[in-house]
Design a binder for these strands. Structure first.
Length: 105
DNA sequence: CACCTGACATAAT
DNA sequence: AATTATGCCAGGT
């Protein structure tokens, strides 16, 4: 477990139920300019019970991957978890903007 | 050390 | 709205 990964997981644990944040937002919060690096850290989530990685989505609300895969079935699972949290989606399957959250600056 | 690959983001076509 | 080009950077090889 690298130091970078710890920072990512710690940040993601703070995302409140019923909201989603973008990879870029997580990156910015932990002081990194690469959203891709965040995705790489979440690619293999070691503790799904304590790190709700399904609450992390693309900047436009799209679901780009889950459980190490971007397959439709994985994304559907991710969508179900978010829905279960009360998050709503638009017609094109993206998280509605009013459910996108971010750390207060 | 030098590539290479992405669960990304943004600007320019 | 959709596609392309660039920048990004941690991890693995």
């Amino acid at each position: 477990m690298t130091d970078f990964q710890k920072r990512v997981y710690e940040a993601v644990r703070c995302i409140p139920r019923g909201f989603a944040v973008s990879y870029g937002e997580v990156a910015r919060f932990i002081g990194c300019r690469s959203a891709r690096a965040v995705g790489a850290a979440l690619r293999r989530n070691p503790t799904p019970e304590t790190v709700p990685c399904y609450r992390v989505v693309a900047a436009d609300g799209a679901l780009t991957g889950f459980f190490g895969s971007s397959a439709a079935a994985s994304l559907a699972r991710k969508r179900r978890l978010l829905k279960n949290d009360g998050v709503a989606f638009d017609a094109s399957g993206r998280v509605r903007k009013e459910f996108l959250w971010q750390w207060t600056r």
